[in-house]
């Protein structure tokens, strides 16, 4: 690994610090997953985002846009300078992922539960077209409240979409608090397995474990695979971890200073 995850974390923190507010919690929890996907796993060509033979990625939890934008910029889909424009008027980087605005974003998301259906649709299209590209989607654990998710799970199982990998960011928090307190979903891995999927659970901040899981997914035929990522919301930002108000944060002056300190510390770690 080439510290790619740390670089994503640094760029994401810089974006959010510059803007002064944003979806920091859910961005930080998927950094390692994005790092593995874009630095190791996916077949992509950043100079040709619409390449027909690429693997597809759908960020169903569209509010984690900042982490995805940092990843895409670091891979060279667009100039890193663009990261300074997060949520500015007429920006190419809005809060929620938008396929029309950002090079490398394959699907527009933001209204929860919808990205997984689109990912399943892309995977089905690839089967119809007899193509071997793979499709990856990240869904939040809070997002599992949406009934549409279960419609898509049934669809993907029925159509034997073994070219689809669903990654669930189990960071245990949603906007209003702990997912268990709002609507206890039980054992997520077991629930997905109950829909016929091959389902496993790994440490979502351990890149080797994620990589191993995605490798395993490639060997599973005739059923789709789900990788539940055991994660920490706002991972790496100590003053926001385990904080039930870390979904969308408007930073105080003190927090801005702490973010700057953290960015410097992370930059030191990789030099």
């Amino acid at each position: 690994m080439d510290n790619f995850a740390t670089k994503i974390r640094i760029e994401t923190l810089k974006m959010l610090r510059n803007r002064g507010f944003g979806h920091i919690g859910g961005s930080m929890s998927i950094v390692e997953a994005l790092s593995v996907l874009y630095d190791n796993e996916m077949t992509i060509d950043p100079s040709n985002p619409d390449w027909e033979d690429r693997d597809y990625f759908v960020l169903s939890k569209g509010h984690a846009g900042p982490a995805l934008y940092s990843t895409l910029a670091l891979k060279g889909y667009f100039d890193k300078q663009l990261l300074n424009t997060l949520n500015e008027a007429h920006t190419n980087l809005p809060s929620h992922a938008d396929r029309l605005k950002t090079p490398g974003v394959d699907m527009t998301t933001g209204s929860l539960g919808q990205g997984i259906s689109a990912a399943a649709g892309i995977a089905k299209a690839l089967k119809i077209q007899k193509k071997n590209n793979r499709v990856y989607a990240i869904v939040g654990d809070g997002e599992l409240n949406e009934g549409q998710v279960y419609e898509a799970l049934m669809f993907a199982f029925h159509h034997k979409l073994d070219n689809l990998v669903l990654m669930i960011d189990e960071n245990k928090l949603q906007l209003d608090g702990y997912t268990d307190d709002i609507c206890d979903q039980g054992d997520i891995r077991l629930k997905i397995a109950g829909f016929g999927w091959h389902a496993l659970r790994v440490d979502g901040h351990n890149e080797a474990a994620i990589k191993h899981a995605l490798q395993e997914a490639k060997e599973i035929k005739k059923v789709p695979t789900c990788v539940v990522l055991d994660t920490i919301k706002a991972k790496g930002v100590s003053f926001l971890e385990n904080n039930t108000s870390n979904h969308h944060v408007r930073f105080t002056d003190k927090q801005i200073k702490e973010l700057e300190h953290l960015i410097k510390q992370l930059e030191g770690d990789i030099t």
Binding site: D106, Q114, I116, S117, A118, A120, G121, I122, A125, E151
Partner: peptide
């Protein structure tokens, strides 16, 4: 609901 989303994926 899923049908609309799958259609979107096919269109992609």
């Amino acid at each position: 609901q899923n049908m609309m989303g799958v259609a979107a994926g096919l269109s992609v």
